[in-house]
Amino acid sequence: MSTAKNNTGSWRTERPVIDQDACIRCRTCWVYCPEPAILELDKPYVTKDGRRYDITYEIDYDHCKGCGICAHECPTKAIRMVPEGVEE
């Protein structure tokens, strides 16, 4: 939680990107993130195959250091690390 008051996003060489259709909302990324960089939002989402979720996970890039723990721990591999500066 050391970055809560400091923006550390400029430290990254890679950033996590969440595939919302592959995410099963298990909270694993949220639990393992060492900083307050993964946000659990009350934001409904419907996947392309019709699964409905009441919450959505998003990355707060101002606080994400790019450590990759979220991508490593994700059981469905819904999070991948991409080089910083590459548009998705």
Rank of each mutant, 00 (worst) to 15 (best):
M1S: 10
S2K: 11
T3S: 15
A4C: 11
A4S: 13
A4F: 11
K5N: 12
K5E: 13
N6Y: 05
N6H: 09
N7H: 09
N7Y: 05
T8A: 08
T8D: 04
T8W: 03
W11A: 11
T13H: 12
E14G: 06
E14N: 14
P16W: 02
P16D: 02
I18S: 08
I18Q: 07
D19W: 01
Q20L: 15
I24F: 14
I24S: 11
I24P: 01
C26N: 04
C26E: 01
R27Q: 15
R27L: 15
R27D: 15
T28G: 04
C29G: 06
W30P: 09
V31T: 14
Y32F: 10
P34M: 03
P34C: 01
E35Q: 14
E35W: 09
A37L: 08
A37P: 09
I38C: 04
E40F: 06
L41I: 11
L41P: 07
L41V: 12
L41M: 13
L41F: 05
D42T: 13
D42V: 10
K43I: 10
P44R: 14
P44A: 13
Y45T: 04
V46Y: 02
T47C: 07
T47V: 06
T47N: 09
G50D: 01
R52W: 00
D54L: 14
D54S: 15
I55M: 11
T56W: 03
T56Y: 07
T56D: 07
Y57D: 07
I59N: 04
I59W: 04
I59M: 11
Y61C: 06
Y61H: 12
D62I: 11
H63K: 15
C64K: 06
C64D: 04
C64V: 04
C64R: 03
K65F: 00
K65S: 13
K65W: 02
C67D: 12
G68F: 01
G68P: 01
I69S: 04
I69T: 11
I69R: 10
C70A: 07
C70R: 04
H72M: 09
H72A: 09
P75I: 03
P75T: 02
T76V: 10
K77Y: 12
A78D: 03
A78E: 03
I79D: 06
R80S: 09
M81P: 08
V82W: 00
P83K: 14
G85F: 00
E87N: 15
E87T: 15
